[in-house]
Simulated scan of single mutants.
Amino acid sequence: MKKKYENESLVNEYIKYTKVRLIDYLGKQLGIYSSEEALSIALNQGLDLVVISEKSIPPVCKIIDYGKYKFNQEKKAKEAKKKQHNASIKEVKMRYKIENHDYNVRLNQALRFLQAGDKVKATITFRGREVQHTNLAIELLNKMAKNLNEISTVQQIPTKDGKNITMILTPNKK
């Protein structure tokens, strides 16, 4: 019988190996047995014979309750998925002539994003002739990077992109 899924284990009579290394319910190695002998030992104990590792020679089988085993595998996979955090890029937009209070609001926004584990893209936009003042915008972005340097690092230095100047900050690893 073929397995339905890649992560599904072979169980009981579907194990077609001639010899298997057998491990009992408590984790003690019992030795190398034929699959028929191993299966009869497992069924006598009222448990299942499950292939744990097909890669070793001979394959490793364990005598366990397959229902509990499958439940625990799914539980571990769910926990691992919970712990993953996909860092997305959050954007903070401002103008180079920003007032002090507004700057602090943007700084706090960026701080919250970084503490949540997200990257921050700080963008300064220009209108019309304001493009002449790119040096002031770069100074403002460098000031933001300096204010956030304890919890972040600069991934991309301030660079001009059309009528915008952008900088990307990434959170420091904990």
Rank of each mutant, 00 (worst) to 15 (best):
K121Q: 00
A137P: 06
E139D: 11
I151T: 00
L141D: 00
A137E: 14
K119P: 00
R129S: 07
G128P: 01
M167V: 06
T153W: 11
Q132Y: 05
L140R: 07
A122D: 01
D118W: 10
I157F: 15
A145T: 09
D161E: 14
A145H: 14
I157E: 12
N149T: 14
K121F: 00
D118I: 05
I151W: 01
A145W: 08
I138L: 10
N147C: 07
P158S: 11
G162H: 08
A122V: 08
T134S: 15
E130M: 09
T134Q: 02
V120D: 02
N147Y: 10
I138P: 01
L136N: 11
I165H: 00
T166E: 01
A145G: 13
G128W: 02
N164Q: 03
T134W: 05
T153F: 05
V131G: 11
I124L: 02
K119H: 03
L141A: 11
Q156C: 15
M167E: 00
Q156I: 04
R129K: 15
L141R: 14
I168A: 09
I151F: 02
R129E: 15
Q132G: 13
L141Q: 15
G162R: 07
T125I: 06
Q156R: 09
R129P: 06
K143T: 06
D161C: 13
R127C: 06
T134N: 04
R129V: 10
Q156V: 06
T153R: 06
P158G: 13
K119E: 01
G128Y: 07
N135E: 14
V154Q: 13
T153N: 04
T134F: 05
E150G: 11
I165R: 02
Q156F: 09
N142K: 12
I157T: 11
I124P: 00
K143W: 13
R127G: 14
N147A: 08
A137I: 10
V120Q: 09
T153C: 07
Q132R: 13
N149M: 15
K146H: 12
I168P: 08
A122H: 00
L148A: 15
K143N: 06
E150T: 06
A137N: 04
L140M: 15
E150F: 04
I151S: 03
K119S: 07
G162M: 10
T153S: 05
A137F: 01
N135D: 07
G162Q: 14
S152G: 03
L148G: 04
V120N: 03
T123P: 01
V131W: 07
A145K: 08
V120I: 10
D118V: 09
V154S: 13
L136W: 02
P158Y: 13
I138W: 03
K143D: 10
L148S: 05
L140A: 08
I165T: 02
N142A: 08
N164H: 06
K163C: 06
D161P: 12
R129M: 05
G128V: 00
I168M: 13
E150Y: 02
R127H: 08
N147E: 12
M167N: 03
M167P: 02
K121G: 00
